[in-house]
């Protein structure tokens, strides 16, 4: 299957065998979507069609669930996923300004991906590391007590990784 210009046949094969291995398909839509997003990275329409067929449910139900939950995305995310925590603890310690700084430096809004596909930016709700507020994470790595001045060096840290 070609999605967004890339061949994902291998991943789809793995997804299919995962679905076939489930003891029951009842109530498993969210579990299957988690698996699909793990494998492919995003859940475009073609993939939703495929999952609906495999599970024997209407595609409208799949679409309804994908768009309901913020965890699922229909567009590819960047290679480096920046998540700025906007939980209350981080908010009162200035998380809003940190998010704005990332928007400014990366020139994207939250929820978007840079044109080169390197960075995506999301505002998230509480990673539970409130002792370190304000917190951001990049691909799951948590940075605590972030200041506006830290934003550029963090981005550069990942740009350097890309060059290497």
């Amino acid at each position: 299957m070609i999605l967004s210009g890339k061949d994902y046949s291998e991943q789809i094969k793995e997804l299919d065998s995962y679905i076939d291995s489930l003891p029951t398909k009842e109530g498993k839509l969210i579990t299957v979507l988690h698996k699909a997003q793990d494998l492919v990275g995003f859940l475009p329409n073609e993939l939703q069609n495929h999952i609906a067929e495999k599970l024997g449910i209407p595609v409208s139900k799949v679409f309804g669930v994908v768009t309901f939950y913020s965890f699922f995305t229909m567009v590819p995310k960047g290679q480096f996923k920046v998540a700025a925590c906007l939980g209350t603890a981080c908010f009162v310690r200035g998380a809003g300004a940190i998010l704005d700084e990332f928007k400014k430096e990366l020139k994207i809004e939250s929820g978007e991906t840079t044109e080169d596909g390197l960075f995506s930016l999301d505002a998230i709700r509480c990673v539970g590391a409130c002792g370190l507020a304000p917190v951001i994470s990049v691909n799951g790595k948590v940075y605590g007590r972030v200041t506006k001045e830290n934003v550029k060096p963090i981005i550069e840290e990942y740009l350097a990784k890309e060059v290497n």
């Binding site: 969210i30 669930v65 939950y69 965890f71």
Partner: peptide, 25 residues
């Protein structure tokens, strides 16, 4: 275990039930 997918309303017990069943919360 049943994994959520990022929806605050699923902490409400009947929305949670719908989510465990694989539907919209």
């Amino acid at each position: 275990l049943s994994l959520g997918a990022g929806a605050f309303v699923c902490g409400e017990e009947t929305a949670l039930l719908n989510s465990v069943e694989g539907g919209r919360g």
